[in-house]
């Protein structure tokens, strides 16, 4: 199971901030689940500048997900 968090424009697009995905073993698995349920969101997640953090650490490519994994999709950032 993975707890998925969305930020910024991604959250507005999806219409939700947080959701649990059952039975996903890795990021690729999670992405295909998202693509099946929320095709428009899945496309945005693959967009330019979207980063992924697993358990609050940025990752690239695929990664196995623990049962309590927290996966955050982070659109381009803009502070101050």
């Amino acid at each position: 199971m993975a707890r998925v968090l969305l930020f910024g424009a991604l959250r507005d697009l999806a219409g939700w901030r947080e959701q649990f995905f059952e039975g996903v073993s890795d990021l690729t698995d999670l992405r295909s689940d998202i693509a099946r349920l929320y095709p428009e969101l899945a496309e945005a997640l693959g967009g330019p500048g979207v980063q992924v953090a697993v358990d609050k650490a940025l990752v690239r490519g695929n990664l196995a997900l623990s049962a309590q994994a927290e996966v955050a999709f982070l659109p381009p950032m803009s502070g101050g």
Binding site: G8, P76, M77, S78, G79, G80
Partner: peptide, 25 residues
């Protein structure tokens, strides 16, 4: 400041008379 502006994990939405929009660097 240069790094806070375009690298730090913040997301910024601007609300104006024509609605709201997310700001990218």
């Amino acid at each position: 400041m240069d790094h806070l502006k375009s690298r730090a994990p913040f997301w910024k939405k601007e609300h104006g008379p024509d609605g709201a929009r997310w700001i990218e660097p």
